[in-house]
Amino acid sequence: MPQGTFLRLLVFFLGPALLVYSVFSIYPLLATILNSLYSHQRDGSYLWNGLGNFQTLLFDPTWSVPFWNALKNNFIFFLIHMCVQNPVGLLLAALLSLPRLRFRATYRTLIFMPTMLSVVVIGFAWQLILSPLWGIAKMFLQTFGLGFLFAPWLGLESSALITVSLISVWQFVGIPMILIYTALLAIPDELVDAATVDGLNQFQAFVWVKLPLIWPTIGLVSILTFVNNFNAFDLVYAMKGALAGPNFATDIMGTLFYRTFFGNQLQLGDPSMGSAVATMMLLIILIGVMAYLFLVQRRIQRYSF
């Protein structure tokens, strides 16, 4: 093929994708990082500020207190997903992949249902259910004689974050479930038969044969959870608004970013500081992904069947 024709071919096939991707994804990410190095002036102009914005964000109490608070909350948010969402997803996947299970497709379809719905809808529905006004949650606890346990969990500083996290877990448990379920199905039946002949019961076969074979998937699920959690915004915004109340108890990096950039009742929007927050989020996610790729993934053995 002549050089010119080949080049034209490449431009034709690669051009559109690279253009859209570069302009609307890579350029904005780079521009945001660059933006974070300037400071936004009241007259709309930008001045070079070096790492000044980051210094402000990390050490100036008006900025650093919300920042560390959001970061801490985000870690709690992530930990709850890791400790509840992924184990529950694993359990459900393990049960769903049992041989000769009846209604398998029905369970799978129904349990995955909440994952399909928008976070806005989910958040609001749960807000209604947990609301003391409607009293559904209270009624439920009372049926089991546990009425005294009821509290307006979403409204209390001590429990709001945990409640929001659990609602998010409830919605997204379908994703680890499906991914792990797929990995479990890929394990050949004969391997489980061999384990049965070797004298293992279902549970032992799961722990000793299946689990070691799905570590790569569990690793993938973990890093997906990490990236999604540190990028989360919708649920908190839908349930608690941009102010992530009560008293910033549910503030995570996404809501902090939104407030910083757009401003709110308490402060004016600041594109430069917003960029600085976004750059910090980018850094956190990159560190997480790199740590996973270089520390965890290398130690996980992958198997092909």
Partner: peptide, 19 residues
């Protein structure tokens, strides 16, 4: 159960534990 039947089986795909 299979383990108590005092049998041993060789599978078509060998079914060796990859890990």
């Amino acid at each position: 159960p299979p383990a108590q039947r005092e049998i041993a089986m060789v599978f078509q795909s060998y079914a060796l534990y990859p890990h």
